[in-house]
Each structure stands twice: as C-alpha cells, then as structure tokens.
Computed example of a mutant assay.
Amino acid sequence: MYAPRRRQEEGEDVTGDRTIHETEKAVRVKLGGTPVAYEQMAAVSNIYRAAAAVRQHFENSVLRGAELTWTSFVVLYVVWIWGEMETRYVAEEAGISKGTLTGVARTLMGRGLLERRGHPDDGRLVLLRLTEEGERTMNEVFPAFNAEEAFVTEGLTDAECETLADLLRKIVVRTEEKGDDRRQDLLNGAPPAPRRSGRKPRPAA
C-alpha cells in the first residue's frame, strides 16, 4: 500500500507519495547485499525521473496552450532549426520511429503547420518543411518554451547548467558510440527479438 500523501517540505524532492530520497533508501533496503552499482543506478533513474517530470510540466503548460504534444513540438522544432529535411532524418533527430513520425506529421499537416513533398532526385523519399503558419507558431511558442526551461532549472546556477549539459552529453555520446556493440554482446550476436505489447497471446481458435 502507498503511504498517505504528506505535505512537501521546502526544498524536498517528491515523486508520487514518496520523496526521491525515500525511494532510493527503499531500493537499497530491498536489494540488500545484491551487488549493484548504486551511484550509477541513481544517476540513470534520476535522468528518467527528471525527463518525465519536465515533459509532464511542459505538456501541461506551454504546449497545452499551443495544442501540441511533446513529440509534435519536437518534430516542429527539428524542422524549424534544420529546415526542409527527409522524413528519416526528422525521425532520427526527434528520437522517434518512422511510424510514429508518420502519425505526428499527418496531424501537423492537418493543422496547416507542416507540409510534405517528394524528393526532387528520388521519388521514394519524402521531405518535410514548416508552412508559414508553422514558422509563426514556432516563433511564438519557443520563447514561452524556453521560459519554462529556465523555470525547471531555476535551482541551478549557469555553471551548474553547463556542467549538467556536459555530463548528459557524455551519456548520449557513450550510448550512441558503444551501444550497438554492447547490445550485440548481451545478445551473443543474435538479432533483437521483435518487441511485444505485453499482452497475453490469444488462445488458439
């Protein structure tokens, strides 16, 4: 059972009904003598917590006002920054699958924020670019988005923000450069199994 929600003390990090420190302490108690890299586990779990908390805050504030999801904003941002791009590169930069991009792009095109055209040199490829309305939307939304970036990092100094960004870049670079080899080692060279939905298979008819 969850403990009753209690009042948050000033300066205290709270996630759900438990503080972050309470959760980390409970994990140590649960794992007991199991050999675990606790510092690394805390780093990764707090990356996830921070990302989830930030995304939820943005989607419930500045992005809600613009009627955008986090993913749709990221797609617009990528094309806004880099200009017209092939869909495969938009998906890669946004960190989403091509299938997810197809649905997001369809919604954004329906709102008149994004448009597509065939590649002039290869009819198999598709290019995405912002419409005038898309440009106007990003010019209006991004300053408000950046204001919330400043809000969620208000407890950090400029130097701490730079240090945090540098440390996170190291994790990204490490995963991108070494991740494929690591996954191959873990799978003994076998291809990854297809992802499953988590649902129980239907009984045979």
Rank of each mutant, 00 (worst) to 15 (best):
G179D: 11
R196H: 10
R182N: 04
E10P: 00
V14T: 03
L168T: 06
D181R: 03
L68R: 01
R6W: 02
V79C: 07
T153K: 07
E133N: 10
P194M: 08
L164I: 07
G11F: 05
A43K: 15
V54N: 08
T107S: 15
H57N: 05
N146P: 00
D158S: 13
R116T: 15
A165Q: 04
A159Q: 13
M138I: 08
L101V: 00
G32Y: 08
L130M: 11
L128M: 07
G112K: 11
A26E: 11
G95F: 02
R106N: 11
G83I: 09
R196N: 03
T15R: 14
A204Y: 03
V29S: 04
Y2S: 10
A190N: 08
G103R: 00
Q8T: 13
Q40W: 06
D13Q: 15
I47S: 04
R169V: 09
V141F: 03
N46G: 07
A94K: 09
W80L: 08
P191I: 02
I47G: 03
G189C: 07
G83R: 14
R196V: 02
E67T: 11
A53S: 12
S197F: 06
T100N: 00
P203R: 15
Y77F: 12
E86P: 03
A53P: 01
G155P: 02
A205Y: 03
G198M: 06
E12W: 04
G179K: 09
F145Q: 06
L63M: 05
F151S: 04
R49S: 08
A150Q: 12
D180F: 03
R64A: 14
A43C: 10
T153W: 04
S61P: 00
K178S: 01
F73S: 06
T23I: 11
R136S: 15
L167K: 13
E92L: 13
D185R: 12
A204H: 08
E86G: 12
R117Q: 09
F58I: 04
R202T: 09
E92G: 06
R182A: 10
M1H: 01
P192T: 10
A26S: 09
G33W: 04
V74Q: 14
M1G: 05
A165F: 07
A42L: 04
P192Q: 13
E133A: 15
D121C: 02
T15I: 10
D185K: 05
R64H: 11
N146A: 14
E86H: 08
R28Y: 02
G155I: 09
L114H: 10
A144T: 01
E149Q: 13
T175R: 13
R183F: 03
V79N: 08
E22P: 06
V104Y: 09
K200R: 12
E132A: 14
W82L: 04
